[in-house]
Design a protein around this nucleic acid. Sequence first.
DNA 1: CCCAATTTGTTCGTATGTATG
DNA 2: GCATACATACGAACAAATTGG
Lengths: 248, 248
Amino acid sequence: MIRDKFPDTGRFPRPVRSLHAEVVEEIARWLIVGDFTEGDVLPNEQEVGQALGVSRTVVREAVRTLVAKGMLQVRRRTGTVVLSEDEWNIFDTEVLAWRFRYGVSNDFLEELFKFRAGTETIAAELCATNPDFDVAELRDCCDAMERALDGQGDWFEADLRFHRLLLTGAGNRFLAHIVPMLENLFDALLSPDVLIEENMRRTLPRHRAVVDAIASGNTTQVREAMLLLVSEAREDTLRRIGDAGGAE
Amino acid sequence: MIRDKFPDTGRFPRPVRSLHAEVVEEIARWLIVGDFTEGDVLPNEQEVGQALGVSRTVVREAVRTLVAKGMLQVRRRTGTVVLSEDEWNIFDTEVLAWRFRYGVSNDFLEELFKFRAGTETIAAELCATNPDFDVAELRDCCDAMERALDGQGDWFEADLRFHRLLLTGAGNRFLAHIVPMLENLFDALLSPDVLIEENMRRTLPRHRAVVDAIASGNTTQVREAMLLLVSEAREDTLRRIGDAGGAE
DNA sequence: CCCAATTTGTTCGTATGTATG
DNA sequence: GCATACATACGAACAAATTGG
């Protein structure tokens, strides 16, 4: 019972997260792990409420949230039905985070990396042709990564900043919106298992190659450098996942 | 008052859309047209309810929907605050539809077309290297477009099908999820103003060039053909928009 | 440090509407 | 046409958190 996560016992229990957020995530979990799948009808609002120990109102509001994300649909008289996974808002950061938390397939990760390779390459090309783009900042990131290899500073932060600069530097808000997805990816996948010195030493020159290519303004060179960077990142990450058997 | 859209007068009034949907869209409109902008706090739930003639419950559920889409944030004691436009789920189909309906800037459209050019190009390249991809279907679309030029059948439908095939044929669900956005774009922008014979006669061979390039398997050729296709589409569409002054 | 005001959070009871069979 | 099962909608009430005095 969700409610039990808020110990009403002691002096100051105070729920940090609202019941709403808990219920949303719990129902989302049902859908992701497959307790309910496409076409299934959820128990009615009353029953869901009872099962989770919350009122119907809370259930209704939670359902609205998941409807907004394309995971559920409510039909009068029928009830709340689960939509096909490819109706889910795949670009929604919360949906993505839930996937990472409750189980994501290898196929999904492969596709995510392919999408990332494509879009980051576009972004890098646009950066290369954007006169306002500041290459120096990008170089700073590489320097920070290099320092991190010597134990000075945070590799993770510098790496993320590098990719954020690319995606935001393109001057395209659609590309910029991929940043939160990337942050999710980094958070979920860049474990100490992946961030080993061997990988970092290999990827640093790949990053620098991208910077140099952008500085040169040669877009085919940019594309090649970017594709190499992301495909190696994919290797380093997914190999470890496969080894650890971390996913669904 | 939203409520007035449902004439309780006669015998059978029947609201086709729920109050919820109406209120969601109304508040979304407030944000898009700028009645409330970044950082603004909405009137409290009670007041919004009174203003729209609905109960607090309905307002709350509507707000949940907009929070789920990144447009609002709710803080206790403070109230409901409007988030910056670049927090809004830019890939959300409903948000996009509302933008088209209530005002979209030319900059936004430019960026959308650029994003589309990039992602559709990736998709086309992936189709070209996907052994399961059926080029014949793509050719069918072109034939259908050609027939439409002679008054046989629907150009719009064939054109859309063409692009849908590309985006789904790549075998990547992120790319496939761009289809609903494209449908929005087509619905909103491909008016009879744009779909004039001159434009259609020019774009048909561009489509065929993409098909041929994919059939040949030459990815650089695919890219070039695709970029040409989309950039011309952008010209044809935005020129008309500019002429008509249709946007925000 | 506590008090008071404001606003959302949450519950409950009830009535209505709508589609199904 | 009627009963049923469910979502839809309302209103009142109290709880909890945050802010400012």
